[in-house]
Amino acid sequence: MASPRRRSLFRPCIDLHDGQVKQIVGATLTDRRDTLKTNFVASFSPSYYAELYKMMNLQGGHVIMLGPGNKEAAKEALAVWVGGLQVGGGINDQNCLEWLNAGASKVIVTTFLFPDGKFSLERLQGLANYIGKDKFVVDVSCRKVGDKWFIATEKWQRIAEMEVCKESLDLLAQYCSEFLIHAADVEGLCQGIDEQLVQKLGEWVTIPTTYAGGAKSLEDIRLVDRLSGGKVDLTYGSALDIFGGELVKFDDLVRYNAEAMEQMRGH
C-alpha cells in the first residue's frame, strides 16, 4: 500500500519592527519611515506569541527582524521556546552563532549572500561549512519582473541578479536545509497567494519550503497543498485573528495541522 503523501502545513511567524510584533505591507518596507504601511501592531509581547506556538507545538515557525531595534525582542521570543523557532533579519557570518546560542533552531539568511545584489557562492559555502547545513535556511525573498521571479534583498527593495528557478534553487539547496520564500509583491496585502509561484515551487523544490505572502483564507492552505503537491508549507500574517485580522482563525489552522498530520501518519 502506498504511503500517504506529504501535506502542506501551517507555519507560524513573528514579524518584528521597532521591537514590536507587527504586520506590514512588504513592498512598503524602505529606509524611509513615511512610506511604511502597517496593518497591525500587537499589544502582546513577542514572548506571548512564542508561548502560544510552543503550547500548540507548531514546528518550523520563524522570527523575522525587519530592520534595526529588534534584537532584544527576538531574543525574548527565542528564549521562550529554545530550539523551536528560526530567526532571520540581518544574519551573517559574524552574528549567526550568537543567534543559534540564543536558542534559534536555524538561522535564516538572504542579503548577506548577495553583496551589492550579486550572488556569492563563496559566502553560501562558507556559512554552510561554518554552522552546518542543518542550521541554515535561505530566505528566497522574491519579486516578479515580467513573467519571472528574482531574489529581492535589502528590505526587498533591491532586485538581485539571481532568478528564482529550478537551477538556482537546486544550487542553494546543496548548502541549506530549508527555504523560506517571501513573495514580497503580495506580502501583507491579504489579496491571495501567488498561485503561479506556489505551483512552480512544487515542481522545483527538493527541501522543506515555507511560502509567505498574501494568504487570506483557510482555503489558501488547501490551495497551496493542491498546487504544490504538499511540498510547500504556508505562513499566514495580516489575515490572521491573532494579528488583528478578520479572515482566518488561528484555531482553525491548528486544527487543520492536526488533521494533516493524522493523514500523513496514515490514520
Rank of each mutant, 00 (worst) to 15 (best):
S120N: 06
I91R: 11
L113M: 07
G103Q: 13
K75H: 10
A128L: 00
V63P: 04
K54V: 00
A128G: 06
L121T: 15
L124W: 06
L78I: 11
G61P: 06
N57P: 00
W99I: 03
L78Y: 11
K75D: 02
L78D: 09
G89C: 03
M65I: 08
L78V: 07
V109D: 09
P115Y: 02
L97Q: 15
K118T: 15
N101K: 07
D93L: 07
P115C: 08
G126N: 11
Q86R: 11
C96Q: 03
M65V: 08
L100D: 03
V87C: 07
C96R: 07
G84R: 13
L127H: 07
G60P: 00
L100F: 00
A77Y: 02
F114K: 08
V82P: 07
G132F: 05
G83E: 14
D134C: 02
Q86Y: 03
M65A: 10
L58Q: 10
I131R: 03
G67M: 00
C96H: 01
M65D: 05
G90P: 11
F114H: 10
D134R: 10
H62T: 13
G67S: 02
G89L: 01
E76T: 12
G126T: 13
Q125W: 03
Q59Y: 13
K71C: 11
E122M: 11
F119Y: 15
L78A: 05
S105T: 09
N101D: 12
G83V: 11
I108H: 04
I64S: 09
T111S: 15
A104Y: 09
L121I: 11
G117K: 00
T111F: 00
G67N: 03
W99G: 03
A73C: 02
V80P: 01
G103T: 14
A77D: 02
Q125H: 09
G132H: 10
P115L: 00
L124S: 14
A73G: 04
L124D: 15
G60N: 04
G61F: 01
G90Q: 05
M56I: 01
E76A: 14
H62G: 13
L66A: 04
V80Q: 06
P68V: 06
Q59V: 15
V63G: 06
L78E: 10
D116H: 06
G90S: 06
G61K: 04
G117C: 01
K118E: 14
K118P: 10
Y130C: 08
G67C: 01
Y130V: 05
D116W: 00
P68R: 14
K75A: 04
V107W: 00
D93K: 12
Q59F: 10
